[in-house]
Design a protein around this nucleic acid. Structure first.
Length: 409
RNA sequence: CGGGGUAUAGUGUAACGGUUAGCACGAGUCCUUUGGGAGGAUUUAGUCCCAGUUCGAAUCUGGGUACCCCGACCA
């Protein structure tokens, strides 16, 4: 991509309302823009990152054996009446009317929808288990959106649902999902802590949250160094000592990037999603649901991976692999830079090539702000040695590499 | 929803009730510049909305709207 063609205008100043670093940097680098309270636009750079996160998640879901579906955001009121959540779910549903004054819900989660789908199809224990997921927009009528894209009213979410004949089978899968989640977050450059959580209006007996330590987080967790116990304060209350080994607990702020629920038969019972067991008896299907909020994950990455100059993207979710910059607009510099640009693309690299006629300082500032992991500079100075300068975004030192033998990982 | 705050150009900001609303960045044109947001010349664009007080309102009052923060809820 030629930077002169990139639809992005970086800014020196953050929006005046911006409080959290992730929003400040993402807005300055023109990845995202607020439309109105709790609603954000993803511009080309931001959308690329979101797509990369989506790809990672999809890969790991498929690896679990899950199949992808795409369910509607507009939801049938009657299904929500069945579970009694039409009025009780918190945050409440966005509701709208069609032209015949019939009420419709905008989906904030899809338990009703998915349970309706499977109850017409599952007949016997032989149909179980199976797993469905989607990556789709959720709408939540939050009391107050906060922290840029950390908490918004419309956001892209991956939700996975699993269906089992019994609790044992669910628990086995639940543990597999945990592992998959660790892998997803690790690939996104995050280290997370899995904690016991309370399950809110999604319901179920048991749930776990995946937490990224960050001072701007809205959650607080208690961790035990000795035995590894970890829980959300919401779950345990304000306790001082570990309920398992009695050691002192540590309290930390964090961002919840994922939440998994053992739903048990909460939805299958009220919605009559049943199967015929081996002994011929009808039994409710045991369910689990597993969510990751993509924009929040993206914000969490920026919160923990940045410096004064800008964002530092982890390799797998960076909008580009390499940021190539030319300094001085001489024919030779231009020619060499363009060749490197094309050669790198041939090797499968996504390259952002700053072909603009701007001052070096401005280009470097933009480069640091946007945060692509590798920077390449071509200038008269480097060409004297038949080299390009290579620098990693998270390192200070630069090195010169011969153009002939240039290899970028 | 309760409490608090803010609203001036595309962005960030300044202006005791008193001339033509100032500055910086951005953007446009021209010239010079090219290793950490370059310099000069020139142009561009603004008081959230509706009332009121006043000789006079960006400024004071009332109402509205929007946004932000704290609380509750969440991926």
């Amino acid at each position: 991509m030629l930077q002169s063609q990139l639809f992005a205008k970086t800014k020196k100043t953050a929006p005046k309302d911006a409080q959290v670093i992730s929003y400040k940097l993402l807005a300055r680098a023109d990845f995202i823009e607020q439309s109105f309270s709790g609603v954000y636009r993803f511009l080309p750079l931001g959308f690329k990152v979101l797509k990369k996160i989506e790809d990672i998640i999809r890969e790991e879901m498929v690896a679990l054996g899950a199949q992808e579906v795409y369910l509607p955001a507009l939801q049938n009121k009657n299904l929500w009446l069945e579970t009694n959540r039409w009025k009780t779910i918190d945050p409440p549903l966005f509701k709208l009317e069609d032209r015949h004054q019939k009420e419709i819900g905008l989906g904030s989660t899809h338990e009703e929808e998915i349970t309706d789908i499977i109850r017409h199809r599952i007949k016997s224990y032989q149909d179980l288990p199976f797993f469905l997921f989607q990556i789709q927009n959720k709408f939540r009528n939050e009391m107050r959106p906060t922290g840029g894209i950390l908490r918004t009213r419309e956001f892209l979410m991956k939700d996975l649902y699993s269906f089992h004949a019994d609790e044992n089978d669910l628990v086995k899968f639940y543990e597999k999902v945990k592992k998959a989640y660790f892998k997803i977050f690790q690939r996104c450059g995050l280290s997370v802590i899995c904690v016991e959580a309370s399950s809110g209006t999604i319901g179920g007996e048991l749930s776990h949250e995946f937490m990224v330590l960050s001072l701007c987080g809205e959650d607080e967790i208690l961790t035990c160094k000795k035995c590894g116990f970890a829980a959300n304060v919401e779950k345990t209350g304000e306790i001082k000592n570990c309920p398992k080994c009695k050691s002192k607990l540590e309290k930390k702020s964090c961002i919840e990037v994922g939440h998994i629920f053992n739903l048990g038969t909460k939805y299958s019972q009220v919605m009559k999603a049943v199967y015929i067991g081996q002994k011929g008896k009808s039994q409710p299907i045991v369910m689990g649901c597993y969510g990751i909020g993509l924009p929040r994950l993206m914000a969490a990455v920026v919160e923990i991976s940045h410096d004064k100059a800008g964002i530092i993207w982890p390799k797998e979710i960076s909008p580009f692999d390499v940021h190539l910059i030319k300094i001085e607009d001489t024919p030779k510099v231009k020619r060499v830079a363009e060749k490197i640009y094309k050669d790198l693309q041939k090797t499968g690299k996504e390259v952002l090539y700053d072909d603009r006629d701007r001052s070096p300082g401005e280009k470097f500032a933009d480069c640091d702000l946007i945060g692509i992991p590798q920077r390449l500079v071509v200038s008269e100075r480097t060409l004297e040695k038949e080299c390009v300068e290579v620098k990693k975004r998270n390192e200070i030192k630069t090195k010169l590499l011969k153009i002939k033998s240039l290899k970028i990982d």
